[in-house]
Each structure stands twice: as C-alpha cells, then as structure tokens.
Design a protein around this nucleic acid. Sequence first.
DNA 1: AGCTATCCGGAGAGATTCTCCATATCGTGA
DNA 2: TCACGATATGGAGAATCTCTCCGGATAGCT
Lengths: 214, 214
Amino acid sequence: MTQPPSEPLESLEPLGPLEPPKPSEPARGRRTRADARRNRERIVEAARKAFAESGPEASLNEIARRAGVGPGTLYRHFPTRPALLTAVFQDRIDTLCGRAEELLTADSPDEALAEWLRAFLAHARVNQGMGGSLLIEELEKPDALGFDCHQRIQDTAHGLLARAQHSGTARPDLTAIDLVQLVVGIALSTAHATADPSQPDRLLTLVLDAVRRR
Amino acid sequence: MTQPPSEPLESLEPLGPLEPPKPSEPARGRRTRADARRNRERIVEAARKAFAESGPEASLNEIARRAGVGPGTLYRHFPTRPALLTAVFQDRIDTLCGRAEELLTADSPDEALAEWLRAFLAHARVNQGMGGSLLIEELEKPDALGFDCHQRIQDTAHGLLARAQHSGTARPDLTAIDLVQLVVGIALSTAHATADPSQPDRLLTLVLDAVRRR
DNA sequence: AGCTATCCGGAGAGATTCTCCATATCGTGA
DNA sequence: TCACGATATGGAGAATCTCTCCGGATAGCT
C-alpha cells in the first residue's frame, strides 16, 4: 500500500495523502537520513502485520525484532503505542476521509451520511477493534500525533452531518461528536462478538433510525 | 443463590448481597478454612480500591500487597483478572438486577426500561468504564465466573424489554443483546471523555429514541 | 492434642515497556 | 573524493508485571 516510493536520490514525490518523512521538523539544516526513513517504514510494516495478528496489544519489542531494528529505534520513531497505531492507520484514515469528500457531493445527504458511517464503523472494527481503541486512547492523551487523526475524523463527520441537517433529514440537535462516539461505541462493544457478524450493522441501523428526525 | 451456611465461628458480618466463599465446591468433607475466607474478603476489598484508583488495569501484584497476602494467594482465589473484577462488581450487579425486579411491576413499561438502562449505563461507566470492559471481556472467554454475571444482565434486560414490547412502546425487532451492546458501547466510548459529563446521558437518550417505535 | 487436608506466601521464571549512551552511519561541504 | 560532525542505531539493563511452584504453616476435625 504505502510503500516503495523507490527514490533514486531524493525524488520525494509530492503525493497527496502520504505522510512526509518528518512533518514536525521543517528540515532546517540537514535532511532526514535515509536509514531513518527506511527503518520507519520497516517498523510500520511490521507493526501492521503484528497488530493484525495479535491485536492492539501486540508486543512492541516483538515488532522491533521483526522489523530488524532495536527497541530503542522503535521508541525513537514512535514514543507511544498510539503513535505507532496512528501511523499504521494513517492511510486507512486517508481513504476514509477521501470517501467523505466524494459523498459530500452525492445526491442524497441522508444516504451519504449513512454510507460514510457504515464505512467508519468498518474502519473502527478492523483488527479486533483497534481502530476504535485508538480513537478512544487519543481522546485521553492529546498527543500531537493522535489528536490530529481524531480531529480529522471529527471534522469529516461534521461536514456530512451538517449537510444532512441542512437538507432536513437529520435531527438538528445532533453533533459530530455524538455520531462518532456512538459508532465507536458499537465498534468497541462488538469488537470480539463472533456470534453474529451482522450485529454491528444491525446496531448502526438502529442508530441511524435515531439520527433521522421524524 | 448457592448458599451462605452462616458460619458461627466467624464474626464476618452476615450482610446481604455478598458473595459466598466458594460456590464451586459443594462442601464435601471439610469446611472452607476461615483464613481463606478472610483473605478472599481482603483481596476483594483491596481490589475495589485499587481498581477505583487505577482503572481495570491495576496491578494484581499491588492488590495482593495491599491486601497483605502473597501473589500466589491472590491467584489461588481469582485465577484471572475478570474473575477478580466480577467479584468486585458482584454486589453492584445484584443491586442493578434487584432494581429491575421492582421496575418490572412499574406502571409504565416504557419508562421502566428507560430508567433501568440509565442505571445500567451508570454501572457500566463507573471506574473508568471497567464495568463495560468487564462485560466485553466476558463475552470472549466464557469462564464460569464471568459468563454468569453477563448472563444475568442479559436476562434482566430481556425481561424489561419484553414487557415494553408487549405494551407496544418498544420496537418488536429489538433484542436484549442489542440494548446491552449499545449501552456498553456508550459506556466504553465515553469512559474517558471528561469534556462533557452529560454526554453519556445524551447518547443514551438518542438510543432510547430509536428504541421507541413510532 | 494430634492428624491431615487445605491454604499461605514469596521466590523466581519469563515477558514487556522504556531509557541511556557508546558506537556506527549518513549527508554535506571542501 | 574524503573527512567531519550531526543523526541515528541497537542492545544492555532497570523496572514492572503476570503467573507458577512448592516447602512450610495452619485450621478444622476427631
């Protein structure tokens, strides 16, 4: 997905939703070292697999080992677990918010909101609900990395909701926070429910019923 | 439920909704030793405080230390973390389900269901959402201890919901599982949200709107 | 009191998180 | 092309946690 940009020397392509090597430090003086970038990619890739296999509690040590780096290197790049989770989920979130922009011009604001919430629920449920856990964890500790990711989703939800409210199909007293929390809640409480795979959608449909004003 | 033989030698006060010493072994031969019962109480009490302070991830070692017992003793009584959590929450759940029995004879089945769900949400939210986490964890590993606790809540919800459905104020296509999962979801996703204390109730009100059929 | 099933407690193995810093490596200017 | 110094590395290790094992203590029964 996100990887081999295969830069010959330095052709950092100005691609859209891909993360720059170090958005924080604005390249004063020297450039980011190539090995640092390479290791970062390796870590993210190993983390993606490890999280998929073992859930969001996967051992960071083990991830470092599988990435072929030392624990210190992992912690240098990602000081906290949410930071690493965010990096892993970055492109998924990009896709999600990109989908929202298309939906903002859809015919039915109501259906657009519903469809995006379904996509968001799917996102929050992947990998044993780690998407949802991530969003929750970010809320408590507003780190630079996590907050940004959560804010994007909130803003996206706000756009779609406002449009649906303006067209009169959604209750005007709803906020984007309401929607996000309800859907994240469904994701969390059904994260491990293997009994009925359609249950999450069932619950979301119920919530959507409440969203539509009568 | 399964017994308090009301031991005479014990000055352990015979309070109501407290858990029996060992429901599993049906007292063949010898009686449960007094020190075992005493230690069990101490552990539960220490756990209650520790979980309240540090959330459901509190160190079991630390709990044992504060209870004045060794780690081995703690694990003898409570093999898993959910087992200990269940013990801590036992009387709270008793209260919750007891309240439901009163509500089953209330005038308005609709209001009875709503009120109980509010109480259930409060229960699931206490101590940084550990009530909710507990219910979720039980779902994945049906241990004897946890399953029982979850089943009781499910049954209680079912009773109130069935009555509301019969009276025509609740959608007939809802199940008790739906309700429990929605409320647990709200509890989880708002567990750490300190911004707006009324948010959980707000979300529950929304859900209740969806429950009532129009 | 004595016997024995039961229980205690803490040592310790193994796993994990996170830090620190001597060393290796990369990017750059000459 | 080379040397220099800013950057990054990685792994030892401290601290913490979970969970097990078993010699020894103890409570209940007779």
